[in-house]
Design a protein around this nucleic acid. Structure first.
Lengths: 216, 216
DNA sequence: AGCTTTCCTTATCAGTGATAAGCGAAGATT
DNA sequence: AATCTTCGCTTATCACTGATAAGGAAAGCT
């Protein structure tokens, strides 16, 4: 695709990058259907119509493929957040809408969300996070932090408050979304009510009424 | 152990239930060391000093063993929460202490926490939750809800509010803990500050100052 | 002594992710 | 045109996984 890419002056023959796309799309579809853990490399290869070892020409291993999908998931979330910033809204209403973007992303694309935040790789230790996923996550988080700071201008009194608030809010939203996704059978309250109540609680803590100083 | 247990009048020979305990303990230790996904049934059997198929005399399969550990994790959390209720505290301070119990449990016993809330089984679809884990989770949640309602007596105005609040708070705490556990490499803010700020934000939303009506 | 039950073994299975070796055809080189 | 090179793929195979089958050794009861 890029002539700068290699020492060879010859153009790549064609199928290469497209095959890679085919594989990624097929994998995501299968993961959505049957769950990430249940899909084998043979399943993916079969869906694309190639043999299983052929995958390894495009991805070093299975986890590498998952990483790629994780990066895409982060990218998608980032895009959604960026789309909102056009409106130069501020205050409570904007805060609520901003949070809804995160929540809606998780609920509409549960598999992408899982890829990004909840995925436990098979081989490595649980805590060992892929550097690529870490980088993608950091980038997305910076976007999150930036937009949030713009929306919530009041209440950011101490230095470093913006980052702390962003991490706190992110964690809160993640808790909501991840529990919904991981424990579907649980008798959750009506989801809309739940979202509203939760965001209100957060907003009540964030946007204190005039003349009232929040404790601490 | 219990004479009511079977039709046989003979006493069980001994090792049975103890072996089961041995296996569970060894499994939990290995999971803590190497991560849940990285530990095989042969590893567990080897740690106990028996052959791999011998495990299946005590557990139907690997997931069954994980389920057992999940139940124990829930039980441990429940115990911790119940321990606090002795003090008949109320109000904001009690709320903060209550939340700390949950957080501390997750941070002190990360593997138990993962068992209970973050575990993706290998075989089944991700959403398909083991009924036993569901039951254990429900029981623990009821404990959570009950204690919380006692602590936060004000602010519970609408019917069903207690359950909604409990689910909301649980989700918020889970978000914090699970992200810490799953993304250790992330440049988190100082944890103590983080906890304090987050709980304050929640408490500010919950315990509105006198004479101020929270929006909505 | 003989029988039953318990707890464990070895042997083996299908399925997994991954690697090695090689094959055929499309471009490049002569 | 003939040859060479490289690419994209195949088949064969590996070590390992969770799980099952079949059987053995020994403890305790009759």
């Amino acid at each position: 695709m890029n002539p700068v890419e290699g020492r060879s002056t010859r153009k790549p023959r064609g199928r290469g990058p497209e095959r890679r796309e085919e594989i990624l799309n097929a994998a995501l579809r299968l993961f959505s259907q049957s769950g990430v853990m249940a899909v084998s490399t043979r399943d993916i290869a079969g869906a694309v119509g190639i043999s299983q070892p052929a995958l390894y020409a495009h991805f070093r291993n299975r986890d590498d493929l998952l990483t790629e999908l994780s990066e895409r998931a982060f990218s998608e979330l980032e895009q959604r957040m960026s789309a909102l910033s056009a409106d130069a809204m501020t205050g409570r209403a904007a805060f609520l809408r901003f949070c809804r973007i995160y929540i809606d992303f998780g609920l509409e694309q549960p598999d992408a969300y899982r890829m990004a935040f909840m995925l436990e790789k098979r081989r490595s230790r649980f805590e060992t996070l892929d550097p690529r996923i870490l980088a993608a996550g950091l980038k997305t988080f910076q976007c999150f932090e930036e937009r949030l700071a713009r929306l919530v201008s009041r209440g950011l009194t101490r230095p470093g408050e913006a980052r702390l608030l962003a991490q706190t809010l992110w964690a809160g939203l993640h808790g909501l979304v991840s529990l919904w996704l991981a424990r579907r059978e649980f008798p959750w309250a009506d989801r809309e009510t739940h979202i509203t109540r939760y965001l209100d609680m957060l907003a009540d803590g964030l946007f204190q009424p005039e003349g009232v100083t929040p404790r601490r």
